[in-house]
């Protein structure tokens, strides 16, 4: 059974611009890593926006466990079911790395076995940030460090679906491997990991690769 299903989804940013996505039908299942590839401007980020309920499809439907996402409260969907690693991170720059992570945990409204701070700290360590860095304002972190904060934040509330937009774009090969390892672990735990990437290395590690093509809307499974 697919956890996420796109049914003939089209999307236009504006009424009078051409559709960015047209008639896309895709299925994602738990326990797998999906890579979405495509040239710049192909609509990968747009697709993730739709998958994370930041944008509603212009036509078509998205189903979460066979339930129409349009019927689910989008804030609840975003804060609990999907963890998004944005291409440009979308962290709060004046908060510390730790505060950013804790904030997401708070917003999710989920109950945690340990104190949010402790869990967040552990998670930040797992993605490779030191305690000192974790307590630094995001503004004062490097791009790669910010990316890791964004990853930690997306994982912090234990969502079923991970949506990652170029999650390793700013990372060295070694850290990239570590992050991929984390994603693999999550997939083994039964989560659905969807990664948008330009990197063939990352794409290679995925169980499925979907390619978005700009106008021909052709999707290939590898």
């Amino acid at each position: 059974m697919s956890v996420l299903k796109l049914d003939k989804v089209s999307y236009k940013y504006n009424q009078n611009t051409p559709a960015v996505l047209e008639d896309i039908s895709l299925e994602f299942e738990n326990g797998h890593i999906y890579a979405i590839v495509g040239r710049s401007g192909a609509g990968k980020t747009t697709l993730l926006s739709i998958l994370s309920s930041l944008a509603a499809p212009t036509t078509g439907h998205i189903y979460l466990n066979d339930e129409d996402v349009a019927k689910i409260d989008k804030y609840k969907f975003r804060s609990r079911y999907v963890g998004v690693i944005f291409q440009n991170f979308n962290l709060l720059p004046h908060l510390t790395a730790l505060e950013n992570v804790v904030l997401s945990m708070n917003i999710s409204g989920k109950k945690f076995e340990e104190k949010e701070k402790t869990l967040a700290m552990a998670l930040l360590e797992k993605v490779g940030l030191s305690g000192e860095e974790a307590n630094r304002r995001v503004l004062q972190l490097s791009g790669g460090q910010q990316q890791r904060v964004a990853i930690a934040r997306a994982l912090s509330y234990d969502p079923d679906i991970i949506l990652a937009d170029e999650p390793t774009g700013n990372l060295d090969v070694e850290t990239q491997q570590e992050i991929i390892g984390i994603f693999r672990m999550l997939a083994e735990e039964g989560k659905c990991v969807i990664i948008v990437t330009h990197s063939p290395d990352v794409a290679k590690t995925a169980d499925f690769v979907y390619e978005l093509k700009k106008s021909e809307e052709k999707i290939q499974a590898v």
Partner: peptide
Amino acid sequence: EVGVLTAIGMK
């Protein structure tokens, strides 16, 4: 800030 907060699911 509002954008980020709502994007990560804050009502």
